Structure formats: C-alpha cells, structure tokens
Simulated scan of single mutants.
Amino acid sequence: MCPIGIFDSGYGGLTVFRAIAGKLPQYDYLYLGDNARAPYGNRSFETVYEYTLECVHWFFSQGCELVILACNTASAKALRTIQQKDLPALGSQKRVLGVIRPSAEVIGRFTKTRSVGVLGTKGTVSSGSYVTEIRNFYPDIRVYQQACPLWVPFIENGDYRNDGVDYYIQKDLEQLFAQATDIDTVLLACTHYPLLEDRIRKYLPAGVSLIAQGPIVADSLADYLRRHPELAASLSTGGRKTFFTTDSVADFEEHATQFFGEEVKAQHIHLELK
C-alpha cells in the first residue's frame, strides 16, 4: 500500500485533509498530528525542522511516497530544507509538498486592489515565506501580515465558539487593516483558522474576500498528480483514511471530529519527543 501522507502539528491540517479527500476520494491517506509537541507556531526554525523531519521519516517508513505538510509553520520553517537537504539522500521518488506555494500561486486571482492581507501564526509571519512566495508570482501585489498568536490556543482548547475569542479577532483584524485600508483579500495562512471563519467575517470590511487554503491545496494536489502520472499510478486507491496522533487518542478523536466534519478514530504512535 502506498498512501498519501498528510501532516500537521495538531488538528488544523484536518481542514486541508477534508478538502483533499473530497477532491480525490479514491486514494488511501495517513494523517499524523504531532499533538504531543503542538503548537509549532512559536518554536524556532531548527526545532520545527527537526520535529517535521522526524514525522516525514515516519510517513516514509509507512510506505508513503508523497507527504503533504498541511501546516503553514512546518511549510515555512522546514519544507525547503527537507526538499533540498534531506530528500536527495532518501530517494528521488519521494516527494514532500507544502501549503504556502499553492496559496501564493492563486492569490492574484482574488485581488483587484493588489493589496493582500495574510493572517498566520507568529512563526509563519516571522518567516516571511508568504511575502517571498507571493512576490515571486505577483511582483505587483503588496502583502501585509498579521500574527494572531492566540487564535490557535483558543481552537486547540475547544474555546473557539466562545464569544471571548471575538475580542482577539477584532483586535488582530484592526491591526491588519491599520497597515493598509485598501486590502481586499485576506488569506487564512493557518489551517486552524477556518473554524473561526464565521467570526472573522463579522469584523471584515464590506467587500473583502476571505480565502481558506483547503480547496486551494486540494486543487493544486490534483493538478500535481495529473502532471506526475507515474507518481499517481504508484498511489494505492482503496479510499481508506487512517489517523494517528503522538498524544492522547481520546483527545484527538474528540477534537479531530470537529475539524474533519465526520467521526474520526485514531491510533497512537510514539516518536522521539524532545
């Protein structure tokens, strides 16, 4: 069996997984949440790289030839090094893809003012990855970033339905739009944030588009597999979805079901936790 591996530091990647499985239901999938070491957002580049690489190695040991880092922090802080340093030694047939490039490739389709806002974790924002990638595709687009450090803890703790989170959403959006009043497109550059989408929309100026990554990444993966038929042919097609966590199975199942939109049953794995 050769499933597609989907990785996140916690639960957020399940919003991307849901979109991918909806777009490409025929494939087998393994999902791993490194919940025991989550969140990654405030950790150093070196630590995020080490943790992500350990999880990528685990996917490869399970027979995955293709791994999606459905985590913006891992994509920002670890993906490039893994692709350039580690994959050549592991075999050219193995692929690791992220969520930043697919989002950057299409953002220009949504904005008319050419002024875009990016909401993300502290780690994603400080990496500057979105600024760099969007500029590569659209040199005329101005990118304004806002770190939202408390959003993920609210979501991970199941408090995102409480009105208390509204204060922080409104405050962070005010700080984003204080940078530029002509922003007409806001990208949710954290896979957790779609769970706050309705609350975020309440505080967006009229006419501003809010973009989630799940459908974008799913479309990008479908296109990637069309362009790499040899890889697509190697993937197993039983439609199976298997979930793993490095922390409590009961906690994972409770939260993951909310993110994924259907009941989730998980298994525990042990990694070398640092």
Rank of each mutant, 00 (worst) to 15 (best):
V106K: 12
A74P: 04
V96S: 04
Q93P: 00
S127Y: 00
R114K: 15
R142P: 00
T111I: 07
R101Q: 13
G123A: 11
S126E: 15
R135C: 09
V143Y: 07
Q83W: 03
K77E: 10
W151Q: 05
E133I: 05
T132M: 06
V143W: 07
I141W: 02
L97C: 04
R95G: 00
F154S: 04
I82C: 07
A76D: 08
V143C: 09
Y138D: 04
A76P: 02
T124A: 08
Q146C: 09
G123M: 07
T124V: 01
T113E: 08
L79F: 09
L90A: 08
Y130T: 09
S115N: 14
A74Y: 09
S126W: 01
T124R: 07
D140C: 02
P149S: 04
S126Y: 06
R142E: 13
R101E: 15
P139L: 13
T132Q: 12
L150G: 07
E105Y: 03
V125P: 05
D140V: 07
P149Y: 02
Q83I: 12
S127L: 08
K77R: 14
R95F: 13
S129Y: 04
G120D: 05
V131C: 03
P153C: 10
Y144E: 09
S103Y: 01
R135H: 15
S127C: 13
K85E: 15
Q93K: 14
Y138C: 06
E133N: 01
F154V: 01
S126R: 14
P139F: 10
A89L: 14
S127I: 10
Q146I: 11
G117D: 06
R101F: 01
E105L: 13
Q93H: 15
L97G: 02
F137V: 06
L97M: 12
P102V: 02
S115A: 14
V106E: 02
I141D: 08
R101N: 04
D86R: 12
T81D: 11
A147N: 08
L97E: 02
K122W: 00
P153M: 04
A78F: 08
R80F: 09
Q146A: 10
G91M: 07
V125D: 05
T111P: 07
A74F: 03
V125S: 02
S129Q: 12
Y144P: 08
K112G: 05
G123S: 13
Q93V: 10
R114C: 03
A74L: 04
A147C: 01
D86T: 10
L97H: 05
K112E: 11
R142F: 01
V99A: 02
A78M: 11
R109V: 00
S75D: 03
L87V: 07
Q145Y: 03
K85V: 11
L79P: 04
A89G: 08
L150Q: 11
K94A: 07
T124Q: 11
E133W: 05
